[in-house]
Simulated assay, not measured.
Amino acid sequence: MPGRTDFDIETNVYRRPSDIPRTVWRQLHSDPLNANILLPCLVKASNYERRGGRMSKDTLWIACFSKTDHSALPDEQGRVLDFFVSCTDGPIDKYPIFIYSSHPREHLHDTFLLPRMARIASELQRNVAPERTFSVFALKPAAEVFSEVWTQQTGIAVEEQPYYAATFSYCTRETFVQRKASMFPGEVWDLRMAALSDLDAVASLCHGFAEGSEPFVLTRERAFEEASLLIDQGQVWVHEVKRNGQPSAIASIVAVTRETASVSAITKVYTNPDFRRRGFAERLVRKVTQELLQSGKEFVVLYVAHDNKAAAKVYHRVGFAGLASDANEVTPGVEPWLELGFDQSVVRLGHW
């Protein structure tokens, strides 16, 4: 779809992955760590299209280019990709608006962001009903400016409290920390990929995880659907435990999603409240991270909420960068991300 150009800023809307120019694909694949929030879904959509699938009516991607002095790869017209935006569906419901930036956070000042976010918001408003944009997730400065201009353009207010304020972190073979698991008398455990026989237990833990992820809660039925998909696609690990002769139970889960050739994302880390403070989550996260790195992944990534100090401590002990409680130095690639939601009386919530 033809875009708009103003002061060397150009935006283009794409309804199919095959319409996205090679320069955009090249930039995303050259930066798989930062592009992980949307690149895996884009690759899946591309494969789906190749098999003859058709995108839903609200699915689109927006590229924002400009002629700036930047290290990103320019196209034949001398433009570089500043931002790439996805408006797509997930396996359960619609995803938030995800924004990838080719620029480091320290370059994202208001004078740079405002005209670009205004262009992106205008394109989104013209191509999708405003109520589809229930939230935006991006590097903190980009999310803040996008939400400001979105409210100005649509009149839909931002919810008072952020949905998710988190740190993006990663683990590599170099940062990974091997540690012997603590053993408790009378306890036997197994760390493995979930099987169909675990469906009820995994669904219960998916439901518990969602209960703490307002406003993206799930009914028991939707949690069962999510668990079924994760197990069927081989995307969820479990920590099974048996103690003192009691029947075995699933204590913790860890999902592995958003995968590309070199990057995998860990999500949905959750422990049954009856099994907390016993190191089960750390043991399972370490096992899954190690398996992914040994399989050839260069990075395992995750987001951890700023107010979840216990989780940050667990991930730091496994080897995720920049999460030490006394860290004073800036760790390259470890960045604050923010999800801001829009007036729930106007929008239709999705799920991720």
Score class of each variant (00 low, 15 high):
D8L: 05
I9G: 13
V13F: 08
L28Y: 05
S30Q: 08
N47C: 01
N47H: 03
R50C: 10
M55H: 06
D58T: 02
F65M: 13
K67S: 14
D69P: 02
D75C: 05
E76N: 08
V80T: 15
F84G: 13
K94R: 11
F98P: 01
P104L: 00
E106G: 15
R119V: 04
I120D: 09
S122L: 13
Q125F: 13
V128N: 11
T133K: 07
T133C: 08
L139Q: 12
V145E: 01
V145R: 00
S147Q: 08
E148A: 04
T154W: 12
V158M: 04
E159T: 15
P162K: 15
A165I: 02
A165Q: 07
A166Y: 04
F168V: 14
Y170P: 06
V177M: 08
R179D: 06
S182W: 05
S182F: 02
M183G: 12
F184A: 12
P185N: 13
V188K: 10
D190N: 10
R192H: 06
A194Q: 00
L196S: 05
D198I: 05
A201Y: 00
S204C: 01
S204N: 10
L205Q: 04
L205D: 00
C206L: 11
P215E: 06
F216A: 02
V217W: 03
A223F: 02
E225R: 04
G234M: 09
W237L: 05
R243S: 01
I253P: 02
T257M: 07
R258F: 04
A265D: 10
K268V: 06
P273I: 06
D274W: 07
F280I: 02
A281E: 01
R283E: 06
K287W: 07
T289H: 00
E291Q: 07
L293N: 14
K297M: 01
E298V: 03
F299T: 06
F299N: 08
Y303L: 15
H306M: 08
A310V: 03
G319M: 01
F320Q: 09
F320V: 10
A321G: 03
S325R: 15
S325E: 15
V330F: 04
V330D: 09
T331D: 04
E335M: 08
L338P: 07
V346M: 11
V346F: 14
W352F: 15
